[in-house]
């Protein structure tokens, strides 16, 4: 069953900016879906339309067969939203922030309180329940936003840059939590600045640029389309480079560091065989960027312009 079905969605802002140019998109129930694109690609506009924060110009949006134009309240009831910008009343307590949100969805006080406590405990915010939001750290605020987005038990969770500004440990713990919720049946739509995050979490990825979907495919298929991947090699000592061929090209970054562009289909064993024959001793090796990022750059062609999702 389709959790989300978008047909020919267009948005032109009053200033004349065409943010979405006929977007078609489908997300299946239970998917962990990533929407990636550079700054200004139209991601936030698309999410804004889904969540009722932006009025669409034309097109059709359905969430579990409920049409946004026909029954916006039924659509909203099925969505949980964590926006990119913090949108709290900073003077309100954490408890009230989550509890009131449940109330807005019509959940009675007793049930709302039970869910609020559960979520605050799950997201390690229970000891901050009585604290005003302004006293929380950046990471805690993000987790509180997630608790607020989940309190009405939505069928689809929309996350706009959920881990922006979080340290690695917190980001990873949030990934684990989201994966658990996804495994329990929650459909998740994610935009993220960290393409590594999309590669690790999402089983389907769409890449949007200038209001148009460039690619929409399972993550595995997309990664299979990579023409090459770049690796950074740290050398034990200064060495002569092996000669370039069609499969592998080398660049010297500094006397003890080289980059190797490895064509799709070439194994690491083959690369190391070439290096061994050239008597190049390698201390360590790492990918220069994650694979999705390489594909993203390849598709959008805007390397150095400021990647984001």
């Amino acid at each position: 069953m389709e959790a989300l079905n978008i047909k020919q969605l267009r948005k032109t802002y009053s200033a004349g900016v065409e943010a979405l140019k006929g977007v078609d998109l489908k997300v299946e129930q239970g998917e962990f879906f990533a929407l990636l694109g550079p700054n200004g690609a139209g991601k936030s506009t698309l999410i804004g339309i889904l969540t009722g924060l932006v009025n669409k110009t034309s097109g059709k949006v359905q969430v579990f067969d409920e049409d946004l134009d026909v029954s916006p309240e039924r659509v909203k009831a099925q969505l949980g939203v964590m926006t990119q910008e913090l949108n709290f009343n900073i003077f309100e307590s954490c408890w009230n922030t989550v509890n009131f949100q449940a109330g807005y969805y019509g959940i009675d006080w007793k049930e709302a309180s039970r869910r609020t406590e559960q979520l605050l405990r799950d997201l390690e915010l229970w000891d901050k329940a009585k604290q005003p939001v302004r006293n929380l750290s950046g990471g805690m605020k993000r987790r509180l936003m997630l608790a607020r987005a989940l309190v009405h038990d939505p069928r689809v969770l929309i996350l706009d840059e959920p881990t922006a500004g979080l340290d690695i440990e917190l980001r990873r713990s949030l990934w684990v939590y989201l994966q658990k919720r996804n495994e329990a049946g929650l459909t998740i739509i994610l935009t993220t600045h960290y393409l590594e995050e999309a590669e690790a979490l999402c089983n389907r990825v769409a890449i949007i640029d200038q209001g148009t979907i460039l690619r929409d495919a399972p993550t595995r298929d997309l990664l299979g389309q990579l023409k090459k991947q770049t690796f950074v090699l740290e050398l034990v000592e200064k060495s002569e480079m092996p000669g370039d061929d069609e499969q592998v090209q080398y660049r010297i970054v500094d006397p003890l560091t080289i980059e190797a562009d490895v064509a799709h289909g070439i194994t690491m064993n083959e690369v190391f065989e070439r290096l061994k024959q050239a008597e190049v001793k390698v201390q360590s090796m790492r990918p220069k960027a994650n694979r999705l990022e390489e594909l993203f750059i390849d598709l959008v062609g805007k390397k150095g312009k400021g990647l984001s999702a």
């Binding site: 969540t51 924060l53 949108n87 949100q101 807005y104 969805y105």
Partner: peptide, 13 residues
């Protein structure tokens, strides 16, 4: 402060 969005994203008529 944009917390009006709490209501706008909800099914509150």
């Amino acid at each position: 402060m944009r917390h009006i969005e709490e209501m706008l994203v909800s099914p509150m008529p």
